[in-house]
Computed example of a mutant assay.
Amino acid sequence: MPNLSLSTPTGDINLHYHIATPISPSSPDIVANLPSIIFIHGEYACQEVFEAQFSDPRLRNRFNLISIDLRGCGASGGVVSKSHTPAIAANDLHLFLEKLKIPGVHVFSLSIGGHVALEWAHAHPEDVLSLTLCSPLSPEEPEDVKAGRLEVFDFWHDSSAHEGGTPDCEADLDEELISPMVRGCQQMMFSEHANPLTEAVTMTALTHASINWAGSPEILVSCRTICIDWFIERKVFNVEFYAKIKCPITIIHCEEDIGYPLRYAQEFEALLREAGHTEVLLCQVPGPHFANVVYPQLINPILSDRVLSVATPNAGDREEALSEGSEGGHNALLTTPFKEALAQYGYHSDSDEWDSE
């Protein structure tokens, strides 16, 4: 599993990442002259939440796809102190690009990942060529959503506050308390939608969480920082902040999002236009907060269209990549870097296909 060691202003970290190209589901390098998309995950989940994007030939045959576990999440390591913020996570991504010598990228973010993406595009506009923000948050956390997140954290705290976890080892969790917590997280992320992929994404995230966020009071501080403080203490962006972002922006509002109604997305769009952005698109799609998992056939074309509107892939490089390594037919799902991890929890995409529409 590829990991990149970085020295940052807030300590040394290891970022776990994958690069998927038309040639390979797990490549050491991008294909030159093809646009690259970096995926920034949301709360609770890690990069496996983008399985339905990495398996889609309409994305994989056109672009380099790069997924990263943020610091302290998934298989990435590094100190997450009480002062850790989305802005620090954004700088981690900037250093990641610098070290791998990857030129400007397009960004697809999910939920709180959008806050990281906006901080990144603001601080390093040369890095970010376009933003596609799926389920971005409201300026401030709504009280009912805040209460739900605190309830989830309380269940997690009570189930895992005892000693038992060690680095790279799962903590011994209280199953009786974990079950309602998992249901609460799934309700927030997937609403009433359930399928083998939502279950596998949930269980993969739970396994990582039992390693990263459980086992001692000190570790629980890191968990609270990322799962609570990032939400209830997040920076409120203003017009001046948005004016420093230079790239086109697409906002995807998911109509079944129980926490963040459409009006927040509309207010966000209005602020961007007030800041001088003319290339802003607000799209509405069915589905829950993490609609990219349950409705990828609606989400993925929006992402592809945004990237292609900025930079058309080099046709020669794309055809060469396809002839060397693409899998299956036009609609057959492709192998991803997450296949083995998700298969442990019953998800197998080998025979799946999506409609061409």
Rank of each mutant, 00 (worst) to 15 (best):
residue 179 S to P: 14
residue 128 V to Q: 06
residue 174 D to L: 09
residue 351 S to K: 15
residue 123 A to S: 10
residue 303 L to S: 08
residue 275 A to S: 07
residue 288 P to V: 01
residue 88 I to Q: 12
residue 27 S to W: 04
residue 35 P to R: 06
residue 20 A to V: 00
residue 47 Q to Y: 08
residue 161 A to I: 15
residue 353 E to N: 11
residue 175 E to N: 12
residue 121 A to G: 08
residue 23 I to M: 00
residue 68 I to F: 04
residue 253 H to D: 09
residue 230 W to M: 06
residue 254 C to I: 03
residue 147 A to K: 13
residue 121 A to M: 04
residue 74 G to H: 03
residue 120 W to Q: 04
residue 165 G to C: 07
residue 273 R to W: 03
residue 250 T to G: 03
residue 148 G to I: 10
residue 145 V to T: 09
residue 6 L to G: 02
residue 59 L to C: 05
residue 345 Y to L: 04
residue 148 G to A: 09
residue 72 G to S: 05
residue 233 E to Q: 11
residue 344 Q to N: 13
residue 41 H to R: 03
residue 285 V to Y: 07
residue 42 G to Y: 06
residue 83 S to D: 15
residue 269 E to A: 13
residue 323 S to G: 03
residue 57 P to W: 00
residue 215 G to A: 08
residue 235 K to R: 15
residue 64 N to P: 03
residue 23 I to D: 00
residue 207 T to F: 09
residue 201 V to P: 11
residue 296 P to S: 06
residue 278 T to A: 15
residue 287 G to Q: 05
residue 60 R to E: 00
residue 216 S to H: 06
residue 128 V to Y: 03
residue 125 P to D: 02
residue 39 F to N: 03
residue 170 E to D: 11
residue 342 L to E: 06
residue 205 A to P: 11
residue 129 L to V: 08
residue 264 Y to S: 14
residue 220 L to Y: 07
residue 258 I to L: 14
residue 265 A to V: 05
residue 246 K to Q: 09
residue 263 R to K: 11
residue 248 P to H: 12
residue 321 A to D: 00
residue 336 T to Y: 02
residue 260 Y to F: 12
residue 27 S to H: 03
residue 111 S to L: 10
residue 142 P to S: 02
residue 180 P to I: 00
residue 179 S to T: 14
residue 280 V to S: 07
residue 205 A to R: 07
residue 51 E to W: 02
residue 53 Q to C: 02
residue 307 V to S: 01
residue 258 I to D: 14
residue 336 T to S: 04
residue 30 I to T: 11
residue 131 L to P: 07
residue 120 W to K: 03
residue 88 I to K: 12
residue 120 W to C: 04
residue 320 E to M: 04
residue 3 N to S: 15
residue 317 D to P: 02
residue 244 K to P: 06
residue 220 L to R: 09
residue 81 S to P: 01
residue 76 S to A: 11
residue 349 S to C: 14
residue 32 A to I: 10
residue 175 E to L: 12
residue 40 I to E: 03
residue 170 E to I: 09
residue 348 H to C: 14
residue 333 L to S: 06
residue 161 A to D: 13
residue 321 A to H: 02
residue 286 P to G: 01
residue 156 W to F: 05
residue 167 P to C: 01
residue 352 D to H: 12
residue 107 V to R: 05
residue 316 G to K: 01
residue 6 L to T: 02
residue 183 R to A: 15
residue 228 I to L: 07
residue 52 A to G: 10
residue 189 M to R: 11
residue 220 L to P: 03
residue 179 S to N: 13
residue 169 C to E: 15
